[in-house]
Amino acid sequence: MPAEPQIDVPRHLFEAYERLAAGPTRPIAGGTDVMVAITGELAPIPERMLDLSRIDALRGIQLEAGSLVLGARTTYTEIRRSALCREHLPVLVEAAATIGAAQIQNRGTLGGNIANASPAGDMLPILLATDAAILVGGQRGEREIPAKDFFIAYRKTALAPDELILHVRFPLPPGREVRFRKVGTRRAQAISKVVMALAWEDFGSTGWQNVRVALGSVAATPIRARKTELILEGARPTPEAADLAAEILVRELNPIDDVRSTADYRRMVSARILHRLLREAGGW
């Protein structure tokens, strides 16, 4: 009995769509999640796999109508080296640099990180904080899913079995700032204990607008802390606002104890790094 799956290697999207529509198959891009699961016997070997590595339509980083658009097969290394990312959304570069080691950054892809939907996925809070949209496609057509609606339960996404992630669109509203902070288990090659992305738009007199506080590793999915966002909406990054936001965030989060950290630590540290980001934004 051959334990190796049958692997299809389509060159065009329509071929991949056909294969997906024909029955269950496991798409593979960089393979940094699926290969570990197979080798570590953490999951059964898929009977059929769909190698996306030849589909060029899934690659590329472009600026399109006020958005930064990244193909699903964009690797972390490509993000780190992208002049467009550095200019328009440097937080992506910052986050990509914290993921795994060089080998993982060379193989791992943005689309894979999204499809794998780990609650600890380091890029995912950035998608939530920037109101990114995920374009998916299949034989039934294409549709755009807002990041906030994409991660529906623990490692479950809104992606249908016959769909592929095609690209991710990051809107680039003027005046928006985004900050990122990862607290890992060690200084490199570490899965997050807490990962946070904070975004806001600042037009001066009105205070902060469209505030987003997004976190990973503190719930079954990457989440937005909406009560905390509300507290900061229209506010300025003052010591009082930071104290209050930290207080609200602690009450809003309900993380768990697991092999990497404790619920108490995650809650406290989430509040403390939010406080730090607000303090840095306020310059006090």
Binding site: V250, R251, S261, T262, D264, Y265, R267, M268, V269
Partner: peptide, 16 residues
Amino acid sequence: TPERILAAMHGDRGAP
């Protein structure tokens, strides 16, 4: 660990 150090510095007063 940071968990033990932070708990020792500030206890679990951060918890609701």
